[in-house]
Amino acid sequence: RYTFRTRGPEQMKRVVEWARRQNLSYRVEVHGDEYIIHAE
């Protein structure tokens, strides 16, 4: 189980790509310009 905090969509997309390659399920929360990605 991982939690990532990123700023801006570019970093968020990179984390999502990584999670997909690992076959993890993930969800993204948006708080202003901060993205929180939960993957497991």
Rank of each mutant, 00 (worst) to 15 (best):
K13M: 14
Q22N: 15
R20K: 14
T6M: 08
V15H: 03
E10G: 07
A39Y: 08
Q22I: 05
V16H: 01
F4L: 04
R27G: 03
E34D: 09
W18T: 00
K13T: 08
L24A: 02
W18Y: 03
N23K: 11
I37T: 00
T3N: 03
P9L: 15
E40H: 13
G32I: 04
H31Q: 12
E29L: 08
A19W: 02
F4I: 11
I36M: 04
L24D: 00
R5H: 10
R20Q: 12
N23Y: 05
W18N: 00
M12D: 00
R1H: 13
Q11V: 10
T6E: 03
R14N: 06
T6A: 14
R5I: 14
R20S: 07
Q11M: 13
E10N: 07
R14M: 12
Y35M: 05
V16K: 03
T3D: 02
V30N: 07
V15A: 06
R21K: 11
V28S: 01
V15Q: 01
K13N: 09
H38W: 12
F4A: 01
V30Q: 14
E17I: 06
V16N: 01
Y26F: 12
R20G: 04
R20I: 15
Q22M: 15
E29P: 00
H31K: 11
H38Y: 15
V28D: 00
Y35R: 03
E40N: 09
Y26A: 04
R21Y: 06
R5K: 10
F4K: 01
W18A: 01
R14T: 07
V15K: 02
E34R: 06
E29G: 02
R1L: 08
R21V: 06
W18H: 02
R20Y: 05
F4V: 05
E34H: 11
E34L: 14
V30H: 09
Q11I: 11
R21E: 10
A39N: 00
R7D: 05
G32L: 06
A39I: 15
G32Q: 06
E29M: 08
A39R: 01
I37S: 00
S25N: 12
P9S: 12
R27V: 13
H31D: 13
P9M: 14
V30S: 07
V28T: 03
D33V: 07
V28Q: 00
I36E: 03
E10A: 11
R14H: 06
H38N: 05
G32H: 05
E34Q: 08
Q22R: 13
W18Q: 01
R27Q: 09
I37F: 04
R7A: 07
K13W: 13
K13Q: 13
H31F: 12
A39T: 14
Y2G: 02
A19E: 01
S25G: 05
N23A: 07
V15W: 09
L24Y: 10
Q11S: 11
F4E: 00
G32R: 05
E34N: 07
R5S: 05
Q11P: 04
T3Q: 06
Q22Y: 13
P9A: 14
L24W: 09
E40L: 09
Y2T: 04
E17N: 08
T6L: 11
I36S: 02
D33T: 09
E40M: 13
Y2M: 08
R1K: 13
T6V: 15
F4Y: 05
P9W: 15
N23P: 01
K13I: 10
G32Y: 05
Y26R: 00
P9H: 14
Q11K: 07
V16F: 04
D33P: 05
E29T: 09
A19F: 10
R7K: 13
E29C: 10
E40S: 12
N23C: 11
T6Q: 02
R14Y: 07
N23I: 02
V16M: 06
R5D: 02
S25H: 13
K13P: 00
Y35F: 11
I36F: 07
E10M: 09
I36Q: 02
E40D: 09
R7H: 10
K13E: 12
R1P: 10
F4H: 01
V30I: 13
L24M: 14
I37G: 00
S25Q: 12
R1Q: 10
R14F: 08
H38F: 14
R14G: 04
Y2W: 14
R1F: 09
R5G: 02
H38K: 05
E29K: 04
P9R: 14
H38G: 01
G8A: 14
R7C: 11
V16D: 02
R5L: 07
R20W: 05
D33G: 10
E29I: 12
G32T: 04
T6W: 02
I37W: 02
A19G: 00
G8N: 15
S25F: 13
T3H: 06
I37V: 07
P9N: 10
S25A: 11
G8D: 15
T3E: 07
M12E: 00
D33E: 11
Y35A: 05
N23R: 10
E10Y: 08
R14S: 07
E17M: 10
V30L: 11
G32D: 09
E10S: 08
L24C: 04
V30W: 07
N23E: 06
V30P: 05
R27Y: 14
V16R: 02
W18I: 02
A39M: 15
R7F: 10
E17V: 05
R1W: 11
F4P: 00
H31E: 13
V15R: 02
R1V: 12
N23M: 09
S25L: 12
T3M: 11
